[in-house]
Simulated assay, not measured.
Amino acid sequence: MIQHLPITGLGCICAAGPDVQSSLTSMLRGERHPAPALRFATDHRPQLPVFEVPQNYLTDDLPPEADCLRTSQLAMVAAAEALRGCGRTMVELQTLRVGVCIGTTVGSAMNNEEFYRQFRQGEEPEMGPINRYLRSNPAATVAAHFQLKGPVATLVNACSSGTDAIGLAASWLRAGLCDLALAGGADELCRTTFNGFASLQIAAAEPVRPFAAERKGLNLGEGAGMLLLGHPDIVREGERVQGWLRGYGSATDAYHLTAPHPEGAGLRRAIAEALEQAACRPEDIAFINAHGTGTPDNDRVESRVLAELFAGIPFVSSKGYTGHTLGAAGGIEAVITLASLNAGEVPASIGCEPPDAELPALPERRTFPVTGGLAISESLAFGGNNSLVILEGGGAS
């Protein structure tokens, strides 16, 4: 059975930068820019900061006729970068079976408030917003835009969606359903989602502080992250392999609608599954990109599991630079994890000051060098969904 899948392209757009390299560079410099949302307004006081993608980041890879919603636009920008990185022309790619699997949660579904307001008032609103929504399925939009001819799926599984999309795309390749697969996540900031997290009282009024003693909750963000996975037989001699997908694990503990299991039961099972698939041990892992939302319960449970299963192995949370991008988080964080492996340097976990002395494991608060070839990217979601991928950098097989 095929286990290790080559990764020949990476793409990312988020508040940290318009592409992979600029995002990683700004993170290594310790830069972050949370601010009140510009694209929608609420009456929350104080105003809750978010990590919004500047509009000029979206222009380069979108044709003028791209009449789709923002989540799909973000997905197209990240997909374009990943496809450029593989070294194949679009003509070549269109002769192959290239699948598209994208995770999302918001997925542009809740940004038509004015349409529904008019409808409920007995008016007959113009159908443009609904038609735009119907043609904005993220995976279908990407596949159509790049004329890709493999299987297509948009996966919605809360905040593990992007990671689960990578796992599903890997299963396509192992089953011989496609030659290559674009996989990851995309999500946009939305007023409805923003208000929902505020109502749960887990949105912080300050920049997010994962694993800090006085952490107040998360900041929402938006963006997209994509990996181009391949079947080993399709990789050409001399083609640059940017890394390998070694393992994927997923498990659900169904403990609570929004809170993680206090013992991290599902996360432990997901870790065991991924390690078995990757044929590696905990001590083989160089570092972990934790889910690290800055919420009291999530950070407590995740710290406990990491302390017990990966004692002494450094971990970080990249959400301090991107915010919590929901369905996009697994894709963005997998890309940043692999890019850090290849750069030989991992951005510090920002905001963890003062650290929570009651946690059994704490993130690295300084940028540090990578001393191994494997890393984990974790996603913990509402509903008790727990997923992770094990990535290998440096082109080793």
Rank of each mutant, 00 (worst) to 15 (best):
residue 13 I to P: 00
residue 207 P to R: 00
residue 383 G to R: 09
residue 38 L to P: 04
residue 113 E to G: 05
residue 368 F to Y: 08
residue 290 A to E: 03
residue 89 T to Y: 04
residue 62 L to Y: 02
residue 38 L to K: 14
residue 18 P to L: 06
residue 22 S to Q: 14
residue 124 E to F: 14
residue 73 Q to N: 11
residue 127 M to V: 11
residue 237 E to S: 15
residue 66 A to R: 10
residue 251 A to K: 08
residue 148 L to W: 03
residue 197 F to Q: 01
residue 382 F to R: 06
residue 144 A to W: 01
residue 140 A to P: 00
residue 279 A to K: 12
residue 318 S to C: 07
residue 19 D to A: 13
residue 41 A to E: 13
residue 199 S to K: 13
residue 322 T to C: 11
residue 48 L to K: 06
residue 340 S to L: 02
residue 315 F to D: 05
residue 70 R to T: 10
residue 105 T to K: 04
residue 384 G to H: 09
residue 315 F to A: 07
residue 233 D to L: 14
residue 115 F to G: 02
residue 164 D to Q: 15
residue 148 L to I: 04
residue 3 Q to W: 06
residue 157 N to E: 15
residue 43 D to M: 08
residue 242 Q to R: 12
residue 227 L to K: 01
residue 366 R to D: 08
residue 270 A to R: 09
residue 231 H to L: 11
residue 101 C to L: 10
residue 50 V to K: 00
residue 73 Q to M: 14
residue 1 M to F: 03
residue 147 Q to D: 14
residue 58 L to C: 02
residue 395 G to E: 04
residue 229 L to V: 01
residue 295 T to W: 01
residue 42 T to Y: 07
residue 28 L to D: 06
residue 173 L to R: 09
residue 336 I to G: 02
residue 203 A to W: 02
residue 43 D to T: 15
residue 328 A to S: 11
residue 113 E to T: 09
residue 315 F to Y: 15
residue 100 V to L: 14
residue 391 L to D: 04
residue 307 A to I: 13
residue 39 R to G: 01
residue 187 D to L: 00
residue 101 C to K: 06
residue 226 M to H: 01
residue 77 V to S: 10
residue 329 A to E: 05
residue 314 P to Q: 08
residue 375 A to G: 03
residue 368 F to G: 09
residue 336 I to W: 03
residue 94 Q to G: 04
residue 2 I to P: 02
residue 133 Y to G: 05
residue 186 A to Q: 00
residue 272 A to G: 09
residue 232 P to Q: 11
residue 382 F to Y: 15
residue 293 T to M: 08
residue 264 G to T: 13
residue 28 L to C: 09
residue 98 V to G: 02
residue 215 R to Y: 04
residue 178 C to S: 12
residue 210 P to C: 10
residue 334 A to W: 07
residue 35 A to H: 08
residue 38 L to T: 15
residue 309 L to Q: 15
residue 56 N to F: 11
residue 118 Q to G: 09
residue 158 A to Q: 13
residue 136 S to E: 06
residue 90 M to P: 01
residue 265 A to P: 04
residue 268 R to H: 11
residue 275 L to G: 07
residue 72 S to M: 06
residue 154 T to N: 08
residue 270 A to E: 09
residue 121 Q to C: 13
residue 373 G to Y: 04
residue 79 A to M: 08
residue 160 S to G: 05
residue 61 D to L: 07
residue 40 F to G: 04
residue 162 G to R: 00
residue 36 P to E: 05
residue 120 R to L: 15
residue 8 T to F: 03
residue 120 R to A: 13
residue 114 E to K: 14
residue 218 L to N: 03
residue 147 Q to H: 14
residue 394 G to P: 07
residue 367 T to M: 03
residue 334 A to E: 09
residue 279 A to D: 13
residue 198 A to I: 10
residue 251 A to Q: 12
residue 169 A to I: 00
residue 208 V to D: 04
residue 305 V to P: 00
residue 238 G to W: 13
residue 204 A to L: 07
residue 3 Q to D: 10
residue 165 A to I: 00
residue 170 A to Q: 02
residue 291 H to E: 09
residue 287 F to G: 08
residue 101 C to M: 14
residue 119 F to R: 14
residue 342 N to Q: 05
residue 153 A to P: 00
residue 71 T to I: 12
residue 275 L to V: 06
